[in-house]
Design a protein around this nucleic acid. Sequence first.
DNA 1: CATGAATGAGTATTCATTCAT
DNA 2: TATGAATGAATACTCATTCAT
Lengths: 218, 218, 218, 218
Amino acid sequence: MPVASKNSRPVGRPPDLELQDRRRSEILDSATLVFAEHGFAEADVQDIADQTGVGKGTVYRYFPSKGELFLAAVDHGMKNLKAAVDQAATPDKSPLARVSAGILAYLTFFDEHPEVVELIVQERAHFRDREKPTYFVHREANMGPWRDLFKGLIEEGVVRDLSVETITEFISDLLYGMMFTNHFASRKRTPSEQCQDALDLLFHGILATARGGLNVEG
Amino acid sequence: MPVASKNSRPVGRPPDLELQDRRRSEILDSATLVFAEHGFAEADVQDIADQTGVGKGTVYRYFPSKGELFLAAVDHGMKNLKAAVDQAATPDKSPLARVSAGILAYLTFFDEHPEVVELIVQERAHFRDREKPTYFVHREANMGPWRDLFKGLIEEGVVRDLSVETITEFISDLLYGMMFTNHFASRKRTPSEQCQDALDLLFHGILATARGGLNVEG
Amino acid sequence: MPVASKNSRPVGRPPDLELQDRRRSEILDSATLVFAEHGFAEADVQDIADQTGVGKGTVYRYFPSKGELFLAAVDHGMKNLKAAVDQAATPDKSPLARVSAGILAYLTFFDEHPEVVELIVQERAHFRDREKPTYFVHREANMGPWRDLFKGLIEEGVVRDLSVETITEFISDLLYGMMFTNHFASRKRTPSEQCQDALDLLFHGILATARGGLNVEG
Amino acid sequence: MPVASKNSRPVGRPPDLELQDRRRSEILDSATLVFAEHGFAEADVQDIADQTGVGKGTVYRYFPSKGELFLAAVDHGMKNLKAAVDQAATPDKSPLARVSAGILAYLTFFDEHPEVVELIVQERAHFRDREKPTYFVHREANMGPWRDLFKGLIEEGVVRDLSVETITEFISDLLYGMMFTNHFASRKRTPSEQCQDALDLLFHGILATARGGLNVEG
DNA sequence: CATGAATGAGTATTCATTCAT
DNA sequence: TATGAATGAATACTCATTCAT
């Protein structure tokens, strides 16, 4: 039940709450585009306002500062990433299939949304004092189920008896590196192909021999 | 009658070439520190001059602009990285040992030189129009010997019959991701521990079963 | 349902057009003073802003650069000159009286507005690449009626049968030289006295003898 | 007789006095060119040094500052002007012929040395605090003989009984205006043609009627 | 004496943010 | 509430001048 403001009769649901939400969303979308195209420092709030079709002052009614707006855009991007991965790695699939699907979804998301990659770099470059970049905050928050999944796989004997942490970090780092490299070095392979190769190596490693007496010390 | 011909005018203070080189180096070091601490945009050329103990004008005698100075610092960092890796992965070692040593050297370098990681991010954030970030230019230039190495390992049957490109990209991406994540998420593990785990997974994969009838589609 | 269509967004503070015009004018006046006092190079945009009583950013809202502001000030001065001359040399006067009135108005204008003389010198000194200085652009644009006037006087037999161009250039050069010399050499005579003398010589020349057999070659 | 410096035996005429003079002259010439081409503010002392073929420090050994060097260049130009006019308006000519020759020499000099015109403008623009621009200092210093000449012509009845001052100022202003206008407005006429026309008007005025009952008041 | 390396003062311009309307 | 006019902090780069060699 909406609380009527001091001197007004209750007018039911104010008709512009919805508008407010839409506006916020539109500004966020424009911001993502403009920040990704020009970088944080070069992006003008005026451009974002123009792109959205509102006045500059309006942008400031929705977000207290350029920085907050930027951070909100990054957060928005991270939520979209999670949604894409979650939608792909559904619980009805087998655990390994979920791994596979999750990785493919991750690669596909960034392939389709290069602007989010840009946002991630820009954040790290311009907000160096933050404890943890938004990406890693989200990563940590979403990692639990994956840890459980690998724990189960180990117990089942499907995956070797390694530290779960070791596995998830390995995969996380690999994906993080792939995402950046794809974008920075303009790689042309499809997410699907990449995913295939990565999974093969991830699952079986590069060596031909059975694991055992390898000595790499010399 | 003066002996000096028109083309041999300089009779004044002779340039001290050694001093010039030292100066250039000192400025580059200061720049690396200042750029890493404040980021490219916030870094003040005056700070770099102060840090080096010279006047601002002197900085501009050695580097034509703030941007060129920054790029030179990145390049310098990349050269140091190569030197560290080359020194570790010497040809007298066995191929697999060279892989191992190279990876350890890579991780150790960035662990000891976090400022270079910062430079890499800053470059990508502020020089988005460059064809390829310096890191990738160097990576490409230095990759040849590694490709040969893996080609040999495959021929020997030590490494599975995979595309060499697939292997080097996999490792490159993994390392790139590890370097960034270590720095951005403030990971505490030693390069040596990380290297061990990464090599284990890289060599043998995560699966317990022999490679073969795995079906991850469902 | 909002009445405003997408194209009629502005619902906020309406622009005060009259204020804008006044502001522009005030800035132009301040600029004229400051540029004349300090010269173009030494003039500080901050001074102009202070003098006008606005922020420096406001100056840049009205003029895109210091240079454009300066040129606008010169142009403004030239328009004022034309107005002064036009107002004096009205068509109701006889042709020779118009010449006389025009010359007096010209000399009087620069006597009362020495800052415009400064602007003219400064322009020539700092914008050497312009095809024609503003002064000459205006001069050319305003010369037509004077040419017609002299053409008429020649046809009437009042003025000798000389090339109209010769006459107008002679007068133009003379006045240009008088204006500069008055200002640069701090001459003290009143415009009126100067005008008298100049007209006398212009009309009758310096020689006592009737025109004719003079031979100045030897 | 040269005075030997404190602790040295008299060595006769030092062999490099001549070199010094030559150097000074070369620097002055280079300075004139560079100042005229780029304007005072944009001209670099380094350019002048390069142009002369000496080191920047050497320029400062001959002239205490950029400003002094510039002023010396202007002065040099003025002296050349005087020489040109003096050489043309020799006492062996008749008075009116000397006037004619002087004017032609003046116009020819600036036609052949547009760089001097530039110097004159630049001086006025950048040294606004000087009591009198160099040009006017020289003009005043060189005017005496011309005043005498016109005084004589008036006494002879060749020139009307006007104030000598009025005549010389008229001519001076006219020439000053012609010089600037020729240069600024890129006039194409030859000095000789211009001189003819100017003399005709100067001597006889523009009116067809004999001087007398002209009334230009209405 | 000649040189040129070193110095550091000086300034136009942008753009996030505010707030009158 | 939405707008955009007004503000002013903040900063790279140049170049006249000095002086060690």
